[in-house]
Write a protein that binds this DNA or RNA. Sequence first.
DNA 1: TTGCTTGTTGTACGATCGTATAATAAGCTT
DNA 2: AAGCTTATTATACGATCGTACAACAAGCAA
Lengths: 197, 197
Amino acid sequence: MSKPGFTRAEPDARRLSLIAATARVLAREGASGASVRTIAVEAGVSPGLIAHHFDGVHALIAATYAHVGDQVSTALEAAIGAVGDDPRARLHAYVAASFSPPIADRALLATWTALWGLVIAQPAIAALHDAQYAHYRSEIEKLLAACGMATKARRRAAIAITALVDGLWLELCLSPAVLDADEARAIAEAQIAALFR
Amino acid sequence: MSKPGFTRAEPDARRLSLIAATARVLAREGASGASVRTIAVEAGVSPGLIAHHFDGVHALIAATYAHVGDQVSTALEAAIGAVGDDPRARLHAYVAASFSPPIADRALLATWTALWGLVIAQPAIAALHDAQYAHYRSEIEKLLAACGMATKARRRAAIAITALVDGLWLELCLSPAVLDADEARAIAEAQIAALFR
DNA sequence: TTGCTTGTTGTACGATCGTATAATAAGCTT
DNA sequence: AAGCTTATTATACGATCGTACAACAAGCAA
């Protein structure tokens, strides 16, 4: 019986574990702490492994952004699926999910703010951001349409909802003492109700 | 007649120019680009001068955050002063100012997002953020009180307004193609009007 | 003009950054 | 059991990071 010094992993599985480690580092130390060595220690691997699986650290961080964004999208869509067919209930479920786990998780929010800070300097990250938010708005517009909102009003309403949710999410992350999840949810629902009057 | 190799400046004036240079660098390159040497080049001085006027780079960035925050507060209060005595007009002016120069300036917004990314890792920055936002909410609550809003409703309404403005501000910064200042202003005013129904 | 204060420069130091590369070995194939 | 693929490690390299420090000089006082 021999104990292996390390275990080989499937490339996809290893990439996922590196992405997860990157997200944890971003949440704990911010963007400036997300170095090759820090991430490698967090993932329990050698620094060189990152270059083997990703085209540099920038690519790993971009992949982390994309993955976190997909996690959020998945959680949001799951929230819709868990509720009935009433359009307004579906819209409320979609929005309320932003303030519940796993989206309202402090580590996820911290990861997201760290990534926001990279958008300006890195065009590749900015492109991911635009695509991500276009998707959110598109989903919200579909939900608004199901609620009977007129076509020309949807775009502006979707922007308003996205902005409100982002702002509340941000307050929840940066100043947890000021706002809790229940209050964020109540504020969001009240503001959305106003869009239908 | 001799041409001086450099000019001495009053400590306060020099500190201000270093802060302004830091803000420009943050806007252009993000937080990761805000190094001692980059800032020094931007300010047209020697790298060592930063250590002479500030207690390290962290202190300079924190001072930049505080200064930018003060600029925003000043611009917001100036917007209130430029309008009449009608309470609702004053509230609208306060909010609308967030989407007009100098606050809606892309460089300022970029600076702000870069600083957000530092809040998690640097407790000193987080403290500045909490103080800054508490001030904003306090100002908004005063304006809401003048509009006749009940005491117990003010806190939640102030949070809602702050969140909405932040979210719209963010969209304006990160995805300028999606939203322009006029639309942001229109959305904010419509949502605020709903708070009074 | 002479002298003094101190804002300013320039550089050197150790630490850490991202990346490249050769050696190692895990785990499957034959 | 032997061989092969390649995931993984460990290290080295140059660049850049923040900070410290000694020398310089601008501008005021006397």
